[in-house]
């Protein structure tokens, strides 16, 4: 019941934020369309690359497209529903959490879902278009949707974790930004081109293994264990994000007032 109420509020928040964004239809639609065009421009480099070579890092052209589809789709969902997770440092630093603390809802959820990123709708649409171009079947589509959600929840959790560092360290927003950018940058390259230390990092510190690579493997060749690994990691990341945020929240006050006093 409690969880349902939280989700209801999350969608209501998104609805109102969307209402606000739609007040100006020119900016609204141009934001979406330009995001789609922006994403599409990256495909060109891959088309050129694959005209020279058939295989890059063990990925066929179709797999790279699938990688793009998933990355764009999940990135879109995360940025649309949880835009402010990527701005959490600032929310913590300037004391904006006060507003959510006096409301009878989960602070983290209300804070990160209090705004939407309209251009992320472009990412979502683009991800779906590329997926359909790659070929459609009911079972891969269901898997694609599931992985879209798990990946978006994992990258949101990471954004929350790095954003929450602001409870402990001032001026940590730069680090949070770079971490979030890194995930987006790496997520659109075939796994096989990375080796050694970088590969280890991609499966640990920057968990792109569970965000991109394993889902792509499962999408092209279903494997139950890998599927469960993704679901399990997603749950773990969410729990971890909540724990870190709630730990930090106990310190919230001091950071807030220190800023005000300095």
């Amino acid at each position: 019941m409690e969880v349902r109420k939280e989700f209801k509020l999350m969608f209501t928040s998104a609805k109102y934020a969307l209402m606000r964004e739609m007040l100006n239809k020119v900016t609204f639609f141009s934001n979406i369309i330009f995001m789609i065009l922006n994403n599409a421009s990256f495909i060109i480099q891959w088309i050129i690359l694959y005209s020279i070579k058939d295989n890059v890092g063990g990925y066929s052209f179709k797999m790279v497209m699938l990688l793009w589809a998933l990355a764009s789709f999940s990135f879109g969902i995360s940025h649309f529903f949880f835009k402010r997770a990527y701005n959490l440092s600032n929310i913590i630093m300037n004391g904006s959490l006060d507003n959510y603390l006096v409301q009878p809802k989960n602070v983290l959820l209300s804070a990160i879902s209090s705004d939407v990123d309209v251009s992320a709708i472009g990412d979502i649409i683009y991800g779906l278009i590329v997926y359909f171009v790659c070929g459609f079947s009911i079972d891969t589509f269901i898997l694609f949707l599931i992985f879209g959600i798990t990946s978006s929840l994992i990258i949101t959790s990471i954004a929350v974790i790095v954003g929450s560092l602001s409870f402990w360290f001032t001026k940590s927003e730069g680090f949070a930004d770079r971490m979030n950018n890194m995930i987006t940058n790496f997520a659109t390259y075939p796994e096989g081109i990375f080796r050694g230390v970088i590969k280890i990092i991609l499966y640990t510190i920057i968990p792109l293994g569970v965000v991109s690579y394993i889902p792509i493997q499962v999408l092209t060749n279903f494997n139950l264990i890998n599927f469960l690994i993704v679901i399990g990691s997603c749950i773990l990341f969410i729990i971890f994000a909540f724990i870190i945020f709630n730990r930090g929240l106990k310190r919230y006050s001091s950071t807030n007032l220190m800023i005000a006093r300095i």
Partner: peptide
């Protein structure tokens, strides 16, 4: 308050916050 929305919409939103 949400600055771009009307007071009416804002009140409806706060209604939702408090179920």
């Amino acid at each position: 308050l949400w600055t771009h929305l009307t007071p009416y919409d804002n009140f409806k939103f706060f209604g939702a916050v408090y179920d």
